[in-house]
C-alpha cells in the first residue's frame, strides 16, 4: 500500500478511536465537572459495559442486530444503576472529599475487576457485530460497522449535549456544577443530581464499550487503557470542560491512530503520559480549556 491510502486507513482508525474515546472521556469529564470527583473506576464501568454486552448477546435468543441493540440499552442501564448505588453508598458518605473518593474508587476498581474475573472468567470473548458490511474503497476494504460506531457515538454525544443544554434536568446539573450551595438553596435535590450524574457518566462509558466490543473482545482487564486515555483527554482538554474534552478526544484519538502506525505504541504512551503530567504542572487549565 502506498503512503496516501495508508494515511487514509490510519485516519479512519483514528476517527473510530476518537469517537469511542470521546464517549468515555465525556462521562469522566461530566462526573468531574459536576461533582469534582475523579473516578478511577471509570475504566471498570467501561469494562462492565463490554462484559454485560457479551452476556446479553450470548444469552438472548435474538439475531445479532437485535441482540446487540438490546445490549446497547441494557448494559448502560445496569452500569448506571451500579454507579448510582456507588454514589449513594460510598461517595456521598465521604462527603465527596477529593482524596478519599479517589482511594474509594481505586477500591471499587479492584472489586469490579474481581467480580468480572469471578463471574465472567479470564478469557477474552468476542461479541458478534450487529451486521457485516464491508465498504470497498479503491485501495482497501473497510468495515462498515466501524463507520456505524462513529455515527452512533456522534448521535449519543449530540443527545447528551441536547440533554445538558435544553432539558430541565441538564439545567439543574449545570446549576449544581456552578454552585452547589445555591442550587441546594433553590430546592434542587443535590443528592439526586449527583447520583444521576455519576450514573450518566458510567452509562456513557458502558455505551462506548458496547460500541467497541464487536471490534475488540470483552476482557476483565480491558478497562485499564480507556481509563488512562480518558484521563489524558480530560486533562489535556481542561478538567471539567466538555468542549475541551471533545476537542482533545479528537486530537488524541487521531494522533494515537496515526502515531501508533508509525512508531512503537509504548513510546507513544510514554510521551502521552509525560505530556499529561507536564500539562497538569505547567498549564492546569488544559491545552484547550479557557484560562482559569
Amino acid at each position: 500500500m502506498s503512503f496516501g491510502p495508508f494515511l487514509l486507513l490510519a485516519l479512519l482508525e483514528g476517527t473510530v478511536m476518537a469517537a469511542v474515546l470521546a464517549l468515555t472521556a465525556v462521562g469522566l469529564s461530566l462526573v468531574f465537572g459536576v461533582m469534582r470527583v475523579v473516578n478511577v473506576a471509570h475504566g471498570e464501568f467501561y469494562m462492565l459495559g463490554a462484559v454485560l454486552a457479551w452476556f446479553v448477546t450470548y444469552y438472548l435468543p435474538f439475531p445479532p442486530a437485535i441482540a446487540w441493540l438490546a445490549a446497547l440499552i441494557i448494559a448502560p442501564l445496569i452500569v448506571a444503576v451500579i454507579a448510582a448505588l456507588t454514589d449513594t453508598l460510598i461517595l456521598k458518605r465521604l462527603n465527596y472529599d477529593p482524596e478519599a473518593t479517589i482511594v474509594a474508587t481505586i477500591g471499587l476498581l479492584y472489586m469490579l475487576q474481581q467480580a468480572a474475573l469471578t463471574f465472567y472468567g479470564p478469557d477474552a470473548r468476542p461479541v458478534v457485530a450487529p451486521f457485516e458490511w464491508r465498504i470497498q474503497l479503491p485501495w482497501f476494504g473497510y468495515s462498515g460497522y466501524k463507520l456505524f460506531v462513529v455515527l452512533t457515538a456522534v448521535v449519543i454525544l449530540a443527545a447528551v449535549w441536547l440533554f445538558m443544554t435544553r432539558s430541565k434536568a441538564g439545567l439543574v446539573m449545570r446549576a449544581t456544577q456552578v454552585d452547589r450551595e445555591t442550587a441546594q438553596a433553590f430546592g434542587i435535590n443535590v443528592d439526586r443530581v449527583y447520583a444521576g450524574t455519576f450514573a450518566l457518566g458510567g452509562a456513557l462509558a458502558a455505551a462506548a464499550a458496547v460500541l467497541i466490543v464487536p471490534i475488540q473482545q470483552a476482557h476483565y482487564l480491558m478497562g485499564h487503557d480507556p481509563l488512562l486515555l480518558s484521563f489524558i483527554v480530560v486533562i489535556i482538554g481542561g478538567l471539567g470542560s466538555i468542549r475541551g474534552t471533545l476537542v482533545a478526544a479528537l486530537v488524541i484519538g487521531l494522533s494515537d491512530g496515526i502515531i501508533s502506525m508509525f512508531f512503537s505504541p509504548t513510546l507513544a504512551k510514554i510521551i502521552a503520559t509525560l505530556l499529561v503530567a507536564l500539562v497538569l504542572v505547567f498549564r492546569p487549565q488544559g491545552l484547550f480549556g479557557a484560562k482559569a
Partner: peptide
Amino acid sequence: AYLFVVGAALVGLVLFAP
C-alpha cells in the same frame, strides 16, 4: 478473589476507619 479483599479493604477503610 484477592483483588476483592484489597478493594473492599480500601473502601471500608476510607468509609469507616479513615
